[in-house]
Structure formats: structure tokens, C-alpha cells
Design a protein around this nucleic acid. Structure first.
Lengths: 310, 310
DNA sequence: GATGATTACGGACGCCGTAAGCATA
DNA sequence: TATGCTTACGGCGTCCGTAATCATC
């Protein structure tokens, strides 16, 4: 169960070829063959069929474990080395599209307090941001989502990250003006499970979040929008392609759509700042302080610690 | 970042001694010293202070990652080999104390349907059961806890396990008859946050669960009871040492205590069956079927899949 | 001075590359 | 027949154990 063997096994499975994996990893075909054989020998189970190269049942099972394990190993290395490296002169921040809104101000204030700070910003999907922070590719990430008041955001955690709540907004449904429910003052989420929804995981709340907080299988996507642009999303809603769940302040700025608050169940659109272990004098700590909250607890024990902002 | 190195690093940290770790792992002191040096050299960070042997800040950070990683590696091996081993002639089941109640009947029915089946039962704390199932020391585990209706149990997951809801009971507060709230017909959980509570993680709902579902910092323990015996717990409640949260059917059988349902928020005392990847003809599948639910989805992709029982 | 971690050195094993073998499309 | 995985073998590096060295209590 050497990580080296796991890594080549994953590569072979993904590429469905020993030789391609060898090329990618800088080995010879023979070495890859031996590594896979060693793994199969260790587990006493054939993991791959040859010709065509495809994972067996046991192989798929191992893949389900191996990928997170390898991610976690990388995250561990990144976390430790980041802690040891001392405060770097740069701050690489990621954000999911809706969370990116409030970032500019905060970054300006951090730059004012830390001289000669290189800042890089990257916008990506929520889970991608979380993964990049875990891997150490980013120093911090701002992510958002729909949650019940006391719950943390549900992220696919490769490794434990410290999470700080930085903003909590009202949750609203964006509807076209012509929609029968558009004149309501408030809406109940379960009533909307069977409506037409737009799945815009990169721009609005992913429908998976809705299913989670509502505890149903509904909220099926009538249209999928993979862009991040909110005005396109607004246009899609206005044109009647479906509904979308958004934070109140954002939805209020969209033209042609009606924003109706969700009154039941009680929900919040929360933004959280994610980061790994961090020395207290780092730019990340400054960013966390700027976004309204001091870094909690000991930086060496990264655990979820969310507290609502006042 | 060889797991071998991580394992010895963890052992050295735990035992605070190179030589003790060497003895435990079957190495010489010199080998352990070299392994730790190799790890520190790889990460370019001192991980341990010598004399006394104690993890540095970076070392503690690495420990936070290394322990779950090693558990997960073991879980992966166990999961794959279990899948490959074919249906074994034995069924090792673990259960948390309250969940163990309904196990006898189900096991009898499984034994009736599978000839010559060796059955072993082990009762332990909830997280210990989950860990043992992940590690493959147990084939399945029954665990219980307090949750909101649509949430899964919050387990410290080393590796993803399939979870099936097998029972859902009313949640009640066990109070002494003399308690001012004992005559109420129903209680609201937030009102009880500041009451005296008994923390009995091995027998009743852990107080951490209450804090989670209530979203508060309350529910502080006035007394901790580490046993699993429910009648002792009942006696403690009756004597006024504190309150305890229990499933309705269990609390009803305790002498001298009053059981008042929790009406707000809406909570359930749920029991879930946990298992790893499993061939469809295994005793685990039989147990799952007996407990009221077929094995869902493909056995090679272990994910949480809970559905309420009717 | 004794306990215990580190450094030095030699042997064994493991792992990769080259090259030949072999099965399948 | 050709592509591509497997097996055979040789060299190199890694890792462990023994033994000597060094540091701390």
C-alpha cells in the first residue's frame, strides 16, 4: 500500500493504459507493470483487467479509497510545509463566484496592513476552491452556500480546514415576474421541490444543497448553467427556464427577476473563509481578521470552528 | 511521506520515546532515528524535540493528518480484501449500547437463513464501532444517536461507509420525578441548554450531539458516566445528578425517572447500520435485509445512503 | 556515569531500466 | 503482424542492523 503504487494504480485506471501511465509518471512500461503487480500481490486481488485495461470490482473499491488518500497525503505535506515556511510575502486567495463579491475591499485592507504583499485571486467552483486550499495551492478560500442556521457548509473535505463564518445573508428564490408565486411575500422550500430549477453550481446554490437542507429528492434541474456570470443566470430565470436560489443582496440586483425570501425552513446563505494551519503573523491571519473574526484556537489543530458573525 | 515513516513518527510521538517506539514496532533505535530523520529531511522541518521527545508545532500538525491517513490506509486494505474474500462464514457485528437492543432478533433470523454462520457481537462506544467497521475488524455496526429528521448520524468517518437507517424513535428527556419540568407534556431543547446534564457518551446520546442539533454551546456536563449500563444511568437521573437524552422506548423502562418527549426542534433517535463494501451474498447483506432495508446501490461505491424506514 | 538519541558502516533487499517473451486485436 | 502487457535479469539505491559516538539528565 505504498502511496507510490497507489498513485500509479490511479493513473493506470484513469488512462486505461499501462504505457500511457508510464509516460505520464516518467516510468517505463515495465516498471508500471511491476508496480501494479506488486499492489495486486500485496492485496491478493486482481485490480485491473488487461486488454482492455479496466478496474475490476476490487479495483474500483480501491480507487474510491486511493484518490482521497493521495489527496490527503498531499494536503498533509502542504499543511506542514506551509506552517514551517514562515509568513510568505504573498497571499493566494480563491473564491466561489458569489463569495468573490466582498473580497476586493478586504484584500485592499490586508494589503494596506502588510507591506509588499503579492496578492493573487482565483475564482472557481466551491469544491475546487476547498480542494486547492487543502492542497496548499491557495492560502485561503471564500466559499458560500445554503445552510441551516447552525450547520457548517457541506464541503467535500479532503483534509480538515479551519472555517470561519464571514457573512450570512437571507436566502431568496429568484423567479420570473410572470411566475404564479412571484407575488408572494415569502415561500416555503418544500413547496418548490417540484418546480423547474436551474442547476447553476458555479453561480448560485448547487441543487444538492437544497436537497440536503430540505431532506428530499426533489429540486431536479430543468436546465444546467455552467457559467459563473450572474447576469446570464438572471436572464435565464427571467426567461422562465427555471428558478434559482440566491443570497438576497445579489438577487436584488438582477434585472427582470423577482426575489422572494425563503421563510421555511429557516435558512441562511453563508460565506465561510477556509484555511489550513497558519502562523499567526501570516497574511491569512490578517485576511481573517479583516473579514470580521480573529483566528480561533491553536493554528496547529485545524478543525471546523464556525461562529456566526454579529 | 512513506506510510511506514508516518507510522513510526506517530508511535514515537505517542510514546515520547524513540526506543519505546522501536520496541513496539520491532525496529532498532537506530532505525527509528533514521526514519524520523528521513521524514524531517523530506519535509525540511523538525518534527520532534529530543530530550524530552515531544512533537513540535509542525509535528503536531503532521500528527493531525497522519493518524487519519494511516487509519484510512488500513480501512482501504480491509475494504478491498473483504470484497475479494467472498462471503465469509462468520459475521462480526458491533453495536453501541442502546443500538444493541434490537440486535438479538435480527441475528437469529440471519443465522436461520445462513447455515453454519459464526456470529460475534461486540458492544462499544459509537465511534469505536464505526472505526472498527472501517478497519474491517467488524463486518457491520449498529450505531445510534440524536439527529434532525433528514440528517445522517455525525460519525467521525475514517473512511466512507454505507449507512442504512434501521430504526427511528422519539427523543425524550429523562428527568427525576421531583424536577420542576417533570410534569410537562413536552419540552423544548433550547430551554434545557442550561440545565444540569449527565454526559454518558457510552450509554445515552453524547452531549456533543445535543450541542450540534441545538446549535449552542450549552449542555455542559454536571456529571460524567462512562459506563454502558442503562439502569445505573437511570439511577443517576433519579437521584438528581442531571438529565439525560434517550430514545423513548428505552427511557420508558427506567424506574424512578420521568420521560418527557422533546417537541422542539423536531428530533429523532435514529439507529443506523454501517458496513463497508460487501458482496451481495454476504451475511452482512442478509443482516441489512433483516433490519428492514435492502443493500442500496453498487457495493463497490461506499457512500452514505440513508433512507428513513417506514 | 547511565540512559538514550545520533552517526558510521556493511549487507540485504527492493525497485527501476533494458531486453526478451507472449498474448490479443 | 503489431501493439502492448509481462517476465527475466542486472545494477543501483534504500533501508535496516550492529557498533561506536555523542549529548543530556
Amino acid at each position: 500500500m505504498d502511496p507510490h503504487l497507489l498513485r500509479t494504480f490511479v493513473a493506470v485506471s484513469r488512462l486505461a493504459s499501462f504505457s500511457a501511465a508510464a509516460a505520464e509518471l516518467g516510468y517505463t512500461q515495465a516498471a508500471v507493470s511491476q508496480q501494479v503487480a506488486a499492489l495486486e500481490n500485496d492485496l491478493k486481488v486482481p485490480l485491473l483487467t488487461r486488454r482492455p485495461v479496466r478496474p475490476t470490482e476490487a479495483g474500483r473499491c480501491l480507487l474510491d479509497h486511493a484518490v482521497p488518500i493521495l489527496l490527503r497525503l498531499d494536503a498533509a505535506r502542504a499543511d506542514v510545509m506551509r506552517l514551517a515556511g514562515g509568513p510568505p510575502g504573498r497571499l493566494r486567495v480563491g473564491a466561489s463566484p458569489l463569495a468573490a463579491t466582498g473580497l476586493a475591499d478586504a484584500l485592499a485592507r490586508v494589503q494596506a496592513s502588510v507591506p509588499r504583499l503579492e496578492v493573487a485571486v482565483r475564482v472557481a467552483a466551491r469544491d475546487a476552491v476547498a480542494a486547492a486550499v487543502a492542497e496548499g495551492e491557495l492560502d485561503a478560500g471564500l466559499v458560500d452556500g445554503v445552510v441551516a442556521p447552525s450547520d457548517p457548509l457541506r464541503l467535500s473535505e479532503t483534509s480538515p480546514l479551519t472555517a470561519i463564518s464571514t457573512a450570512e445573508d437571507e436566502v431568496v428564490v429568484a423567479l420570473p415576474w410572470s411566475h404564479p408565486l412571484a407575488r408572494r411575500a415569502g415561500l416555503s422550500l418544500p413547496d418548490l421541490a417540484d418546480a423547474r430549477w436551474i442547476d447553476a453550481p458555479a453561480a448560485a446554490a448547487p441543487l444538492g444543497d437544497l436537497r440536503w437542507v430540505a431532506g428530499t429528492d426533489g429540486f431536479r434541474a430543468a436546465l444546467r448553467y455552467d457559467g459563473t456570470d450572474l447576469y446570464t443566470l438572471g436572464a435565464l430565470v427571467a426567461a422562465g427556464h427555471g428558478l434559482s436560489l440566491l443570497p438576497g443582496p445579489v438577487a436584488g440586483r438582477l434585472a427582470g427577476v423577482r426575489a422572494v425570501p425563503v421563510t421555511s425552513p429557516r435558512l441562511l446563505y453563508r460565506t465561510e473563509l477556509l484555511h489550513g494551519s497558519t502562523p499567526p503573523d501570516s497574511p491569512v491571519a490578517a485576511l481573517a481578521a479583516t473579514l470580521g473574526q480573529r483566528l480561533p484556537g491553536a493554528p496547529h489543530s485545524p478543525r471546523r470552528s464556525s461562529a456566526p458573525t454579529p
